[in-house]
Write a protein that binds this DNA or RNA. Structure first.
Length: 356
DNA sequence: GTCCCGTCCT
DNA sequence: AGGACGGGAC
C-alpha cells in the first residue's frame, strides 16, 4: 500500500469526530475552515458552534453587521477573517443567489479564501481533486520525503504544491486531504511526533535519518516589535469614553479606549506632560488610579499596556471617540486585553462572549 | 521560543 | 517577496 493510502486507513481508524466532518454543505465547511485558519481545533470549536447557531445559512450571515461579526469573533484573533467573511457572505448572497459555491475556481475569487481554503472546500464539499497544503501537510511531506527546501520560500511552496497534488488520491480527494491534515495534527506533530506508532515510518526519510526535529525547514523568525500603549479611562455622567479602531493597525474594527502610544516606557508624569495629553485633557490633569503595566504578546508585537484613570473630561475628542454605558459596552467587540481589563474594572458577569 | 486545517497588502 | 495580522498552548 502506498503512503497516501496508509494515511487514509490510519485516518479512518483514528480520526476525531468533529462537527464539520458531518456535512458537505460548502457554507458550513467555509465557516469551519476560515475559523480554523492559524487556529487550533480546540480553540476554534466554540466559535464554530456559535457562528452556526447565529447564522445557520449564508443569507443569515450576509444580513449581519460588521459589529455583530466582530463581537462573535472576539478573542479569536486575526479579525480580518471576520471582516472578509461578511464581504464574502454578502457577495455570495448577491451574486450566487445565496447558494455558497463549491467549485475551486469560484471560491478562489472570494475574500478571505486562498489556495488552502479553496482546495479544502472544493474537495470536502464537491470532491474536487485539489490537494490542501496547510502547516500539517507541509510537515508530513517534508518529513516523509525528506525535503529540505524551506516551506515558506517561493520555491519551496511550489515544490510542496506539486508534491501534494502528486500524492493526492484522486479517487477520494476529500478523505485524502482530511487524512493528511489529521495525521499531521495528531501523530506527525511538530514536537515529539509519535514515530513509534506511525504506520508509514518504514518509508519515512526523516525517521530513517533521525531528522524529524529538523524538518520541515522554515526561513527566518518574525521579529517582535515592542510598543507602549498608554490608555486613558475617563467618564462622563457614568458613561465611559471609548474609541473605535480604524486603519491598518492591529484590532481594526474593534473597540478600545483613548490611547496615546509612546516609543518608550514613560512615567505617569511624563505621559501627562506629553503634548498630545494636553491637547486631549488639558494641562491640569487629575489621576485617580493607574492600572498596569501589563504585557500582551501578539505574534509580531509585544505590547506594554497601562491604564490611567483620569478625573478630567477631554478638551478635544477624536472622531472615533464616543461615550457609552456599561450595558452597551458589553456588546462591543474588544481586544482580549481590553476585554479583560474592562470586565475586571466593571465586574461584569459577562457571559455574552459565549452565550448563543 | 514554535506552531496552529493562511490570506492580504504593499 | 516580505511583512502584517491575535491569541492560546506547549
Amino acid at each position: 500500500m502506498n503512503f497516501a493510502n496508509e494515511l487514509v486507513q490510519w485516518y479512518q481508524e483514528n480520526k476525531r469526530d468533529l462537527p464539520w466532518r458531518h456535512t458537505t454543505d460548502p457554507y458550513v465547511i467555509w465557516l469551519s475552515e476560515i475559523i480554523l485558519q492559524q487556529t487550533r481545533v480546540e480553540q476554534g470549536m466554540p466559535y464554530f458552534n456559535r457562528f452556526l447557531a447565529h447564522y445557520p445559512t449564508v443569507t443569515d450571515f450576509a444580513n449581519a453587521t460588521e459589529d455583530d461579526i466582530l463581537k462573535l469573533w472576539q478573542g479569536l484573533g486575526y479579525y480580518s477573517r471576520g471582516r472578509n467573511m461578511l464581504k464574502t457572505a454578502q457577495l455570495v448572497q448577491a451574486q450566487f443567489n445565496g447558494k455558497f459555491p463549491s467549485a475551486y475556481e469560484d471560491l478562489i475569487k472570494l475574500k478571505g479564501i486562498g489556495d488552502y481554503t479553496a482546495s479544502a472546500i472544493s474537495s470536502f464539499a464537491a470532491n474536487e481533486a485539489h490537494a490542501v497544503l496547510d502547516g500539517n501537510v507541509f510537515r508530513v511531506l517534508a518529513r516523509y520525503f525528506g525535503i529540505n527546501e524551506p516551506i515558506n520560500s517561493t520555491k519551496g511552496i511550489k515544490q510542496f504544491k506539486l508534491l501534494a497534488n502528486d500524492v493526492l488520491n484522486r479517487n477520494q480527494p476529500s478523505i485524502h486531504n482530511q487524512a493528511m491534515m489529521e495525521f499531521g495534527a495528531m501523530l506527525c506533530k511538530p514536537k515529539n511526533p509519535a514515530c513509534g506508532t506511525c504506520p508509514v515510518r518504514i518509508g519515512c526519510e526523516a525517521f530513517k535519518t533521525n531528522a524529524t526535529t529538523y524538518l520541515p525547514v522554515k526561513l527566518k523568525t518574525v521579529k517582535v516589535k515592542e510598543r507602549f500603549f498608554n490608555y486613558f479611562l475617563t467618564f462622563k455622567n457614568g458613561e465611559v469614553l471609548m474609541n473605535k479602531r480604524t486603519g491598518s493597525d492591529i484590532w481594526n474594527g474593534l473597540y478600545d479606549l483613548p490611547l496615546i502610544e509612546s516609543d518608550d516606557l514613560l512615567t505617569i508624569s511624563e505621559i501627562l506632560e506629553l503634548e498630545k495629553t494636553k491637547i486631549y485633557f488639558g494641562s491640569k490633569v487629575t489621576v485617580k488610579e493607574v492600572y498596569g503595566l501589563q504585557k500582551h504578546v501578539l505574534t509580531h508585537q509585544r505590547l506594554i499596556i497601562r491604564f490611567i484613570w483620569l478625573e478630567n473630561e477631554p478638551h478635544f475628542m477624536e472622531a472615533d471617540w464616543f461615550y457609552t454605558n456599561v450595558e452597551n459596552l458589553k456588546k462591543l467587540a474588544l481586544p482580549k486585553i481590553i476585554f479583560l481589563f474592562l470586565t475586571n474594572f466593571f465586574k461584569f458577569e459577562n457571559n455574552s462572549l459565549f452565550s448563543i
